[in-house]
Every structure is written in C-alpha cells, then in structure tokens.
Design a protein around this nucleic acid. Sequence first.
DNA 1: GATCAGGAGATTGTATCCAATCATCAGGAT
DNA 2: ATCCTGATGATTGGATACAATCTCCTGATC
Lengths: 215, 215
Amino acid sequence: MSKASRIVEQLRRQILDGDRAPGTRLGQESLAAEFTASRMPIREALRALEAEGLVTIKAHSGAWVSALHQEEFEQCYKLREVVEPMVIGESVPLLSGAQIDQIGELADLIDNTGGAADLRSFLRLDREFHLLSYAGATYPFLTDLVTRLWNMTQPYRRELVRFMPAESFQATCAEHHLIVDALRSRDIDAAQTLVRLHIRRTRITLSRYGEVLWS
Amino acid sequence: MSKASRIVEQLRRQILDGDRAPGTRLGQESLAAEFTASRMPIREALRALEAEGLVTIKAHSGAWVSALHQEEFEQCYKLREVVEPMVIGESVPLLSGAQIDQIGELADLIDNTGGAADLRSFLRLDREFHLLSYAGATYPFLTDLVTRLWNMTQPYRRELVRFMPAESFQATCAEHHLIVDALRSRDIDAAQTLVRLHIRRTRITLSRYGEVLWS
DNA sequence: GATCAGGAGATTGTATCCAATCATCAGGAT
DNA sequence: ATCCTGATGATTGGATACAATCTCCTGATC
C-alpha cells in the first residue's frame, strides 16, 4: 500500500473523529512534517480527499477541511431522505440473516450510549448501523454517495448532537429498532418509509440547533 | 488555471469523443510527452479522472481508460432510470423559459442528425439535451452523479448507437419532444415518467446489441 | 507440456529542488 | 481616512532525479 493512501486514511479518520475541524488549514509543509513524508504524497492525499468532499482546495492558495453552510448541511439531509430509502430498498432482500442480527446488536449498543452522554461511541455506532443496513445494495455509485454525505456532515453532526434532548435520542433508538424489525420481516416498504422519516425527523431536530452553531 | 486541470479537460474530452477507447493504457511517461509536461501534473489529472470514474488506476501498475462490463453498463442505465426522474422533478419548476426553448431547439437538431447517420453530433446533442433539462436541479451531488453516469457510458453508447435501427431513433426523437412539452406545461409528473420510460426503452434497445459488443 | 521461480526491464511512487502564484503589508496618492 | 500600488515573504505548482514495485520473459523443474 502506498504512502499516499495511508495518509488519506489517517487524514480522513482525523477529520471524521473531529481532530481536524472544518475550516482548518491543511498546509502541505506542516502535514509533510507530521506524517514524516515529502509534500508529494501529501498532495495526492489532499486531492483524493477533495474528491471525497472532505477537503476543499483552492489553486495556488491551499487546502482546508471542507466547511458547510447551514443550508448545505440541510441539503445533504434532504438528499439523504430521497437516496437512502432507495438504497435500503435495494438492500433489504439481499441482507443475510447474520447481517441483520449484527444490525440489531448495533441498535442495542446505541441505546446504551445515551446519545450525547457518549458522543464518540454514538456517532460511530449510528454510522455503522445505517451503513451496514445498506450493505446489500447493488449500486456502488449510490452507496458511495451515501457514504460521502455521511462523511461531509459528520463534523456538524458531532456538534449538533450535543444539544439533542433526551426525548429525541429515545425517538432515534425506537426508530432504529423499528427499522431492524422491518429488515427481519423483509418488509421493503416499511424499511423505506422508516428510513425516510428517521432522517427527516433528525434533520428537523438538528436544524433547530443549527442557528446556535452557524450564527 | 493550472496545467493539471487543462490536462484533465483535454483527456476527458478525448475519452468522451472516443479518441481513447476503454481499456487503453494511459502511461504517465507517454502522456507527459504528448502534453509536453512532466509526470507530476499528469498524475494529478489521472487522479481527478479516476474520481470521475473515467480512469481506473492500479497501484504500482498503471492507469487505463475505464472499461465497463455489460452488466455494469446496464446497471448505470438502471440507476439513471431512478435518479434522473428525481433530478428532472427538481429541475422542472426552476427552468427558465429561455432554457426550455433552448432544450426544444436541441430536440429539433437531434431530429436532423438521423441518429447513427451523424453519430458524433447525435451523441453531443443528446447529451446536451438531457443535461440541460436538469440544469434547474438544486442538488449538486445528484447532477454530478448523473454527469458521471453519462460520461462513463458514453464510449459504449457510441458503439451501440451504430446498431440502433431507424424506428428506435424515431422513438427517441418523439420522446424528446414529449419531454419538451412536459417542460413547457411544467408538468412534473409527466416529465418524470417520460424520462424514466425514455431511459428504460433505450436501455432495452441497446442491450439487444450488447451481446455483439461484449461477446 | 504446464507450472513455478527468478531476474531484467519498464513503470510507478517518492524526495528534492526550482519556478510561479498569491497573500500581506508598507507606502504614497487622492 | 481610504484606496490603490508595489515589493516581500510564504505557499503551492511543476520539473527532475532516485527508490520501490510490478510485469513479463526466460529457464528450469515436475
């Protein structure tokens, strides 16, 4: 595996984990020093992350961790409301029983995080829960798009979930279990509707606290 | 504008125009000689085109113009059947009257190409017709996806359209004009249905000749 | 005859160096 | 006081040189 691709993975991990906040400058020289490499693999890594939407590059100027305006953030969620039901519809008939069991276990684990109480675990498990439920889907383009949308919004989700009230967290957990039930009974329609409503409710809940974050 | 981005545009154009067929090797050294540049901007360009799906890179091995199997080609069309109705639904209410007129003119121009008779013009205009009809859509991610799907399938469309019988070409033209009518009357539902059927019929028509191409 | 090991050649990946471009700030004119 | 202008410093873009890796051919072995 090349040095550039290792740097891509590490940088992506750092951005998603919140170690590098949106708007942070990514200077080639300083990154080269950090990763003990030359600027060349750094440049390739930044280009790759730009293609993923995680990094924004301005010619002859520099690279920054991509930042979203509130409208862009909400547009990502609105797009997810349309695309993810489509993807889970493809996925439901093709998921294995073992996969569905695993998704159910993730739902249980999420219950125990308490949402904002264990933010890091919640974000990681919630992401895993949803993306695994799409594992059966056959359209690589759409699953890539979904992953991109999750990645791009992750830093903001981290900040916004802090404000999420307990009742909203409980709703999230309940919806997760309903989704698992729909998967178990292979009910495509129910799964699609639940996913759409789940994302929609989350968007509306989060947008209430967006004013604080973006103002 | 950087040298790399100029190379991206030229290479993309060459691939879409059929000057570089799928499976063709893209050696860094030879490309550097062609474009009178060093290998460095070439690498950046290849990475960018890889992100667009037009180029496939294998580590330590090389880059090739992306090739699709028949199943992948048809999967692109099936995905278009789902995504493009969504996009045109977003687009219809936001297209300007001037844009719709322009789309109508494109439909007329396509009639005059005679399909396989003037293949180059047909491909260019057909592409322009559809992509312009999506110009009102507000989701950049989805329009990017649609453009990617068009680009990736273009080399194969070029080959397959050669076999397209006259009746199929006439059907295509008729459907185009029906779509224009739907745009003019701002009929979202009609536009979505027509686009879906248009893509579906094209896929079925083309797949009939795929055996020849891929066997 | 088929398969696998090994080495030569070619090609990609990385480091270093130089050139081009942009941001910043001082200085002067309006 | 504000805006424009120009020089300086920092940073990215590109070229060249070297290292790492793969491919393919050769030849030996089963």
